[in-house]
Nucleic acid binder design. Structure first.
Lengths: 338, 338
DNA sequence: CTGTTAGCGCCTTCAT
DNA sequence: ATGAAGGCGCTAACAG
């Protein structure tokens, strides 16, 4: 048989040779230590050290059909909500020995699809997806090559995978519950477009709080704005100022911060005349001139949970029940609505 | 010869069989189209479509010694500066067919090292690193396995790789030039700790502007704070308010926004009594109650340039001159210092 | 322009 | 507990 010149010089074979064992033993030492005598392990590790051996994951990925890569597909990354998720998911991935590919779809379905293809080509073990379109069928591509998709902030139309989300209805409930309990009079909800599911859920929760506390729905005035920005919040509050409101629920922190400004410009003080509650607990909320009472979303828990569900699914041999986890938001009290 | 049951059913071989060509032709159609007759290409593509064939990059990575993965190592991601870089780098990577692994070191050298190891194991083609420690020798691990490290925001001690950075001295120069040209009187620079290189550079540039314009250094008062936060900016401005200053240069946007608040609390108006310039052009700057004049850092250019340098180095056969690129910041005029 | 063939480095059954 | 050997899917020589 012809000798393999390279294999003896680098790679697992070289380690085996130096340690005086076979390649299988080296592989076992690395992946199933309990199958190898401690003494042998020590010899192997010494050889690894000596040769500066770095295992080649492409090779094991090829051999095993799947590797230690997972993908995270998000619409944006320059957005504290998503970057917090990315941070948490990346930490969890690393702790489990996985590398996390960052895929920013930039609100473009074509880009999202391109990322899905690339992850499929890399034979990623799975992907955590904050999907753009209601149509999640394109994620099927991933299943075709053995990658497991996990949804964030949306559930599967048919029970076809794991998902994690934050209970937006509950968040809306908490916000309004606080406002009605601490004020008497008209409250306005400044909300984004109704084609954003989160906006609908938050308002639904807000109105549910009214019902639960036996308060007429007429106490809550809806005000819809086209964009969820500070400017729109300011404009909305200026329009609302003359209506005699005592409370404002901005369905994200930008709207709420804008509302505080608009109220101020209209001569109303926060929280003296009007209490304001936001949603999201971005840095913006704490850093605002009058710190914002808001709904905190457990972004880190969300990110870690997504990875956890994904790894569960990967490691589950064949028996695996998909799981749809719903996380609880919480109220953070600050000056704007004490 | 014994038949290979699997290879005929999926993978490149199956495509070859269906298209009635050899595996080499399929490979060529995919990677060197110019070497294949258009007619044949069409047949191959039809077969690919038909079989829903997804090439396996682990296999080609193994074969080629390196794959289509690059890493981005950053200290944080929940920070608009780094997330903007990540966005740009990720876009550039995707456009070139690379997947980008996000590695957040969380200001921990051990975590950074762990990421380096993992990228080495994956045989990443390269890594873009915003390094933590002054010691970049650990990046050598990457070179050992054929991965090319590119530094961001720091140059190589010895000319041993490519790097990109933003000219902080120039930024400081621009900030102070603007302040001295639009005011008359004492200016304060509120700066972070001198062990942060960027802080030193920015102040150096600020003082260089004074020299260049023949203004005595005594017109610029240095004020150092332990942390570059809004709170510290506020505190600094309050302390400075009684000194009769007419201008403030906050060496990041947080300090500048804080300064505006502190000045306001001391009864001084911005820009009426005092002009304020920040640094960074974060969303915070534009969204501040009095929008902030600041120094814009070309974060997107930085991210794309890093990938460009990296790919240049990867694709350069053997002849490659390392490049250290320095990017120009610019002044963005807003209300705080018109 | 296209076909044949020999591994890339590792893992895992099968034997010992 | 350890050794031997085949092949994962693909590419780059070389032949034709």
């Amino acid at each position: 048989m012809v000798a393999k010149p390279r294999a003896d010089e680098l790679g697992l074979a070289a380690v085996a040779k130096l340690a005086g064992v076979s390649t299988a033993t080296v592989s076992n030492t690395l992946n199933r230590p309990q199958m190898v005598t401690p003494t042998t392990q020590a010899r192997v590790h010494a050889a690894i050290e000596e040769l500066q051996f770095v295992p080649n994951r492409s090779a094991s990925a090829l051999r095993n059909g799947t590797g230690h890569l997972i993908g995270l597909i998000v619409p944006e990354i320059v957005n504290p909500f998503y970057s917090a998720i990315a941070k948490a998911a990346g930490d969890a991935a690393r702790e489990s020995g996985y590398v996390m590919a960052l895929c920013v779809s930039d609100d473009d379905p074509d880009v999202e699809l391109e990322h899905i293809k690339m992850l499929a080509e890399q034979r990623a073990a799975g992907a955590i997806v904050v999907p753009l379109a209601a149509d999640v069928s394109r994620l099927a591509r991933l299943r075709l090559v053995g990658a497991h998709p996990v949804l964030v902030d949306r559930e599967w139309p048919v029970d076809d995978g794991c998902s994690v989300a934050i209970d937006d209805e509950r968040g809306g409930y908490l916000a309004l519950e606080h406002l009605v309990r601490t004020t008497e009079g008209l409250i306005a909800i400044i909300n984004g477009p109704t084609d954003i599911p989160q906006c609908v859920e938050r308002e639904k929760g807000a109105r549910a709080a009214l019902d639960a506390l036996d308060i007429p729905q007429s106490r809550l005035l809806s005000f819809e704005v086209p964009e969820m920005t500070i400017e729109q919040g300011t404009a909305a509050a200026e329009a609302l100022a003359s209506r005699g409101i005592v409370g404002v629920f901005g369905t994200n922190d930008q709207l709420a911060v804008g509302a505080i400004r608009g109220l101020g410009q209209a001569g109303l003080s926060v929280p003296g005349d009007v209490a304001v509650v936001g949603y999201g607990d971005l840095a913006l909320a704490a850093e605002s001139l009058t710190p914002l009472t808001t709904i905190r979303q457990p972004k880190d828990v969300l990110g870690r949970a997504a990875v956890e569900l994904l790894l569960n699914e990967i490691e589950a041999a064949g028996d695996h029940r998909h799981e749809a986890r719903l996380l609880e938001p919480s109220l953070v009290l600050r000056s704007s609505a004490p």
